[in-house]
Design a protein around this nucleic acid. Structure first.
Lengths: 144, 144
DNA sequence: ATCATACTTGACTATCTTGATCATGTTTGT
DNA sequence: ACAAACATGATCAAGATAGTCAAGTATGAT
């Protein structure tokens, strides 16, 4: 599970959309790409690409024309960082061929388990939770 | 934590060396690169590079000249897959700049926690354990 | 109608990392 | 001396990543 800038931007955009759809409870106000890029310092045309992917995945809707923009199309409580990462097409860390030796195989199981561990973490991070913590101004949630 | 072919090969080589140093208890028989590449299907000159790195990290010793080769220089019970991955210079998944917004920061914490989770898994996998299980012919250790 | 706003689409480029190779040396046992 | 085996540095191709550009289409406002 590699966290690329693409995935990071995608999550930021989704969180931003979730925030907006929450504040203004009327569904009639899509958010323009420009607003997101301004607030989060994301290269404009790059975010366009990313939103296209998110739309294909069904997580956002687009509204064309003047006053158009993007809008979340799912419940923020039903989507996790893992969902977004996978939608963006985050490459799996281990695309190995069939193991040739027993050592090879055992190592492969370790890589898989490591990848599973990080996926578990991301699969538990719901957008709604993150927003909630953000509103309460919680600094850090993981205590070392 | 990205598991590249480089890391995989490094671990295979370390495991192979650990096996050999265990069988023949006299320290007088280094293992030639050729023997490792033959057994594990690793491109020869590539393993040379990798062993160079492992030597710089202090995990293996080299013996030059005829009858030379490589030898483990640490106790297989004291080294984990994480140690090897880090020695190889496995890039950390998140080399992000200082977070500009609060959302940015919260996301970053999640990426860090995900990376930490997989590091924890690899940090518990000692070479000696893997070899032990390999000898007992254990198929898979993680039960879904 | 027309104009500005804003999304759509597809192609394109630069840079970096990864995986891998080669040539040329140096060391050492026999 | 000779061959086995490591040492070192340069180099290369392919793919991914990050980011850009240009031309087009839809829609609300005037």
């Amino acid at each position: 599970m590699v966290i690329s800038a693409r995935v990071h931007y995608a999550c930021l955009a989704m969180l931003e959309l979730a925030m907006r759809s929450d504040e203004a409870s009327d569904d009639s106000s899509p958010v323009a790409i420009r607003e997101i890029t301004d607030r989060h310092n994301i290269p404009g045309p790059f975010l366009v690409q990313i939103l296209r992917t998110l739309r294909a995945a069904g997580w956002v809707q687009s509204v064309r024309g003047s006053q158009g923009g993007y809008r979340l199309s799912v419940d923020p409580a039903k989507i996790t960082l893992l969902d977004i990462a996978e939608a963006i097409g985050c490459q799996e860390s281990s695309a190995r061929a069939t193991p040739s030796t027993q050592l090879d195989e055992m190592l492969g199981e370790h890589w898989d388990e490591a990848a599973a561990a990080s996926r578990r973490v991301l699969g538990e991070a719901r957008l709604s939770d993150i927003l909630e913590r953000c509103r309460h101004g919680d600094a850090s949630m993981f205590y070392i």
